[in-house]
């Protein structure tokens, strides 16, 4: 019997893998991949709550769709930023993007 806690554990594990990817990777595109994994984990949680706690309404699914919209906007703008930085610095290593540091 699969309960809500199974889905929450899966979402938590996926979120932490994405967090590790976002924090530990050197390539800026890989950081964005980690953020996408984290957003997917959040969506799993939202849909699981919807399914197990309030199955007659679709509020969790509507929220998940809004999260998908925001994620699509975020990845488009983020990749445009990465392309622009790469064009100026010929580099997409986030360790080298330190010209705001003093």
């Amino acid at each position: 019997m699969i309960t809500l806690n199974h889905y929450l554990a899966l979402g938590g594990l996926l979120f932490c893998i994405g967090l590790f990817g976002a924090l530990a990777k050197r390539n800026a595109v890989a950081v964005l991949m980690g953020i996408e994994l984290m957003l997917n984990a959040v969506n799993i949680n939202l849909v699981a709550f919807n399914h197990f706690l309030e199955p007659a309404r679709v509020t969790g699914q509507v929220f998940a769709i809004f999260v998908i919209v925001v994620a699509a906007a975020e990845v488009a703008v983020g990749l445009a930023l990465v392309l622009n930085i790469y064009r100026r610095r010929l580099d997409s290593n986030v360790d080298d993007l330190d010209w705001l540091r003093w």
Binding site: I17, L19, L23, A24, K25, R26, N93, V94, D95
Partner: peptide, 13 residues
Amino acid sequence: LFNVNYLAAAVVS
């Protein structure tokens, strides 16, 4: 590849 603080990232995650 991983960046310089991947150990801290692993601990935090």
